[in-house]
Amino acid sequence: MGTPLGDFIRAKRDAIQPDSLGLPDRGRRRSPGLRRLDLAARAGISVEYLARIEQGRDRNPSTAVVNAIADSLSLAASERNHLRYLAKITSDECSAHFKPAPPLRRIRPSVMDTLHMLEQGLAIVTNRLGDVLAHTSTYAAVTKGTGLLDGDPPNITRYVFTDPRARALFLDWDDIADEQAFDLWLAPSVENLEWLTAELIPLAGSEFTRRLNRHQVPRRGVLRLKHPSGPELRLTRETLELPADDQQIVVFLPVDDQTARTVEQLGRQSTGRLRSIS
């Protein structure tokens, strides 16, 4: 059985063309990308050792080996961070001390006070699973009619992969799907994988599992929404991490004047108020 670390290394190896690293073309092969032999040689480790890491038979590569593999794959900074994170959660030491715990859905009063200060704008509190734990009334007004807040609790990950309305709302649905799948690896415990297996994977199918297992570090560009009333909204996202709670406050800011006017108009139409769902 493989591991997240092995899956990521294998996915990156398969995505690299040998000539991009100055390696000779060795002719036809059964799978695309960089050969295990070539990666092992570049990293200064044996082919057998690399195979054990990729196949999950060795769960404790040293920091030096992890860094050598990152160098050999020419990983970007964000990909290196993800590789190190996967090495940490894959290790036997981490697994031995792991105690499954459900994701925290309670919101501290000071977090709600912070969200209250953002009430005139678009803001939510989420956990790593994508549960929307609280939101401003403006956020509810902007997403009204999309089904995003219909769940109990509403969950962005489930919505993106299982609700057909998500593809109409998110104009760059593929990018958003990559983000939601990737962020699940940052969740606080493997209890989340149990949640995925039991609930999301049977509903979302291969579209979800393919993105989850390829560990594609998302771009996180401008968020483009197609509002049901017609206009396109273009928003940037600023995220305030709450590490003690494994939660985040996400604030959505208009990129252009048209978006700002539309958000303001929708906000004035709202009859709701700040809501905590947890």
Rank of each mutant, 00 (worst) to 15 (best):
G6K: 08
R13W: 12
A15N: 06
I16C: 04
S31E: 11
S31G: 09
R36C: 01
L37T: 15
L37I: 12
L37M: 13
D38F: 04
L39W: 01
A40S: 09
R42E: 04
R42K: 14
R42Y: 00
I53D: 01
I53R: 04
R57W: 03
D58I: 06
A64C: 03
I69G: 06
S72V: 03
L73M: 02
S74D: 12
L75E: 03
A76K: 13
A77D: 14
S78Q: 11
S78H: 09
R80T: 06
N81Q: 14
N81Y: 10
H82D: 01
L83K: 04
L83H: 04
L86M: 06
T90A: 05
D92W: 08
C94H: 14
P102K: 15
R106T: 15
R108Y: 10
M112L: 15
M112Q: 08
T114S: 14
A123V: 01
V125M: 08
A140L: 05
T143A: 11
K144N: 13
T146V: 05
T146C: 00
L149E: 02
D152M: 13
D152W: 10
T157Y: 02
T157I: 00
Y159F: 15
V160G: 03
T162D: 06
P164L: 07
R167S: 09
L169G: 06
L169V: 07
F170A: 05
I176P: 02
L186P: 05
V190N: 13
E194L: 13
P202M: 06
A204K: 00
A204D: 00
F208C: 01
R214V: 04
R214I: 00
Q216E: 15
Q216M: 13
V217L: 00
V217M: 03
P218K: 04
R219V: 12
V222L: 09
L223W: 02
L223G: 05
R224S: 14
L225Q: 07
P228M: 08
P228A: 03
S229F: 08
E232Y: 13
R234F: 12
L235R: 02
L240N: 06
P243H: 08
A244K: 13
Q248V: 13
Q248L: 14
V251H: 09
P254W: 05
A260L: 12
T262Y: 07
V263Y: 05
G267L: 01
Q269F: 10
S270T: 04
G272C: 03
S278M: 05
